[in-house]
């Protein structure tokens, strides 16, 4: 049986705008992925803990509050500290080009801006997960 893509979708920040992330969740499900949705107001430690427990290939976050330059690095730091640096981190939000470059340099795999079709994110995720290789031995 081919391994399924498992992806965690989370919504950090205090606001409750979850329309976009729910659309993405439905699109990923319809593309055959297993989507774990964590709900609203997740802190970086909550997100990374959930990602580890769920053993996901990728974490997707939706950040609309303008706090992306704080939240993405905080999640990355948390991932590294908890030995989960190999999980793909991507996100969506209103982020200017220069900051997207900055975030990508830090280790965010991809940032989607408003209006990006869901197909694009599905394609991205499939490719990124496909490239991921683990050489760890189970036993």
């Amino acid at each position: 049986m081919a391994e399924k893509i498992r992806v965690l979708l989370a919504k950090p920040g205090l606001d409750g705008h979850d329309r976009g992330i729910k659309v993405i969740a439905a699109a990923f499900r319809d593309a055959g992925m297993e989507v774990i949705y964590t709900g609203l107001r997740q802190t970086p430690p909550m997100i990374v803990d959930a990602a580890i427990q769920e053993d996901v290939d990728a974490i997707g976050v939706s950040i609309l509050s303008g706090a992306h330059m704080t939240l993405f690095p905080a999640i990355l730091k948390e991932m590294k500290e908890k030995g989960a640096g190999d999980i793909i981190l991507f996100g969506g939000g209103i982020v200017p080009d220069e900051e997207i470059k900055e975030l990508e340099a830090l280790g965010v795999a991809k940032v989607f801006t408003p209006g990006a079709p869901t197909e694009e994110s599905i394609r991205f995720l499939r490719e990124a997960v496909g490239k991921k290789k683990s050489d760890e031995k189970i036993m």
């Binding site: 439905a26 593309a31 055959g32 297993e34 989507v35 949705y37 964590t38 709900g39 427990q53 769920e54």
Partner: peptide, 27 residues
Amino acid sequence: SGGALLGDRVRMQEFPAAEQVYFRSMA
């Protein structure tokens, strides 16, 4: 599609560290 939307974590907030409470969603 063979995909799944696993939403049970939404109600599982404010748990202590995974060593004490571990949560796993399955399809």
